[in-house]
């Protein structure tokens, strides 16, 4: 079939285009630092070295920053999954009014520009005495990090046959037991997918770290990486090695969770 062939070629083009950034990052990270400008274009460098990965850990306090990021992630991801899952469950099983409220609130929250919240949130966290701690970075998980995750749960739970929820209600189960007994086990792939997305978000969260963290020792990995911005261009391979180190955990999480997201949650 001709159409299938055209489609395959088009998919191939898309794959190549979108793999370019990651490919460039690794290609750049493997170049020897301090070299002369490249002569001509080469995606695969002539000389390759892993030295940059070692050197970059001596420029910034990479391990400490990774530990800080890990602490944030360890608290923020489970909270995000739990709250998003509950809210998604309430969208599917709740009373009409609650569903409307949740949907409208989610869409409105998606439409609020994050930039607009920087100043008031900063003032709020300062008033609460939480500046230069991890709490402002973990806080977004209290609103499920992104309403988008709530909607993913709602999508997954809406595919569970309604009569299962109705039966549980007739049995006199509380909504918490119904969630735990029916929605949670049947929607596990989505929980996994959202956990993955939340991990990627919190692991990468730069802006909140930039706004709220001031002591070097408290820097999370994204904020620490920023220091590499000042390296002179001949040392860019070091900068890319740092970027690669920060990217790998997110990449691994994504590759582990992508099937749960695409095949199991979106059912594509």
């Amino acid at each position: 079939m001709r159409n299938t062939a055209i489609r395959r070629v088009a998919i191939g083009v898309v794959v190549v285009i979108f793999l370019l950034p990651v490919a460039f990052m690794f290609s750049g990270a493997l170049r020897p630092a301090g070299g002369a400008p490249p002569e001509g274009f080469d995606l695969v460098p002539d000389v390759m070295t892993f030295e940059n990965f070692r050197v970059v850990t001596s420029i910034i306090d990479l391990w400490r920053q990774m530990t800080n990021s890990a602490i944030v992630v360890a608290l923020a991801v489970p909270t995000t999954v739990l709250i998003a899952s509950w809210a998604g469950f309430a969208i599917v099983t709740g009373a009409r009014k609650t569903r409307r409220l949740l949907l409208i609130a989610s869409v409105v929250a998606l439409m609020v520009p994050a930039t607009a919240l920087w100043v008031p949130r900063f003032v709020m966290f300062r008033w609460a005495g939480l500046l230069d701690s991890f709490w402002p970075l973990i806080a977004p998980s209290l609103m499920a990090t992104s309403p988008f995750y709530v909607l993913l749960f709602a999508l997954a739970y809406s595919r569970i046959p309604r009569h299962l929820f109705d039966a549980a209600r007739l049995e006199g189960l509380s909504s918490l037991s119904t969630w735990w007994g029916i929605a949670w086990p049947l929607g596990r792939p989505t929980a996994f997918a959202v956990a993955m997305l939340a991990f990627v978000f919190h692991w990468s969260n730069f802006i909140d770290a930039l706004l709220y963290l001031s002591t070097q020792d408290n820097y999370t990995l994204p904020l620490g990486l920023r220091t590499l911005q000042t390296l002179e261009p001949t040392l860019h391979p070091l900068m890319l090695a740092g970027a690669a180190i920060a990217t790998v955990p997110a990449l691994v999480a994504f590759l582990l969770g992508q099937r749960a997201l695409f095949a199991r949650t979106l059912e594509v």
Partner: peptide
Amino acid sequence: GRPAAYLPSVMPDVAYALLWLWILNPIYGP
């Protein structure tokens, strides 16, 4: 194709920005 198209979104914003700092460099950039 799906995970491939999603992949750049997985990169931390800072890492992604540093990458482009190199890509766009007028002398050393690819």
